[in-house]
């Protein structure tokens, strides 16, 4: 399960909307071993493409070193699909090189709703996991979740199981 603050999700969605129809990408860093995403780092899509994304190699080095210096790791690696569902493509799977990260996908194909889903990708195997969105600003115990692009509604959600 990925637990993530609503303000970070909102910032990721805003980034994806801003770069639409190109794919947007980035990282959310967190303290090593915490599994808690705390610091949102929007990255440049060096491919500037509607169907492909790639971190700029120099920005990648700089951001990874900075995380190292701060005892952080990439807890979430996100990107958007702008015309298809928020599910990892073959390309996503073949590139996935951070076995400890939550791979968060946002689909911006619908103008009014976002589809936000999270996956583990280890050795080419994709496992979907629930996303728990924490509304820290309102009540730390209040939990809402997105499911398949609908408005937040339920307290917890099961993944689709595919």
């Amino acid at each position: 399960m990925l637990s993530i603050d609503r303000s970070i999700v909102d910032a990721i969605v805003a980034h994806a909307r801003r770069d639409h129809p190109d794919e947007a990408c980035g990282v959310v860093a967190g303290p090593v071993g915490s599994d808690t995403p705390t610091r949102h780092i929007p990255m440049e899509n060096a491919a500037r493409s509607m169907t492909f994304y790639e971190f700029d190699s120099m920005e990648h080095l700089r951001v990874w070193r900075e995380m190292d210096d701060r005892d952080e790791e990439p807890v979430v690696i996100y990107h958007s699909h702008t015309a298809t569902e928020a599910y990892p493509s073959r390309t996503d799977i073949s590139f996935a090189g951070e076995p400890g990260a939550h791979y968060l996908l946002v689909s911006t194909r619908e103008p009014d709703t976002e589809e936000i889903r999270s996956f583990r990708i280890v050795d080419g195997v994709v496992t979907e996991e629930p996303v728990r969105i924490l509304d820290a600003g309102v009540d730390p115990h209040a939990v809402q979740s997105y499911m398949f692009g609908q408005s937040p509604a339920t307290v917890d959600y099961e993944c689709s199981g595919r």
């Binding site: 492909f52 990648h60 990892p88 493509s89 073959r90 590139f95 996935a96 090189g97």
Partner: peptide, 15 residues
């Protein structure tokens, strides 16, 4: 050495 971070909606044939 860093694993490249890349991907996208690119289909299987393209990959």
């Amino acid at each position: 050495i860093l694993p490249a971070v890349a991907g996208g909606a690119f289909g299987f044939a393209a990959a």
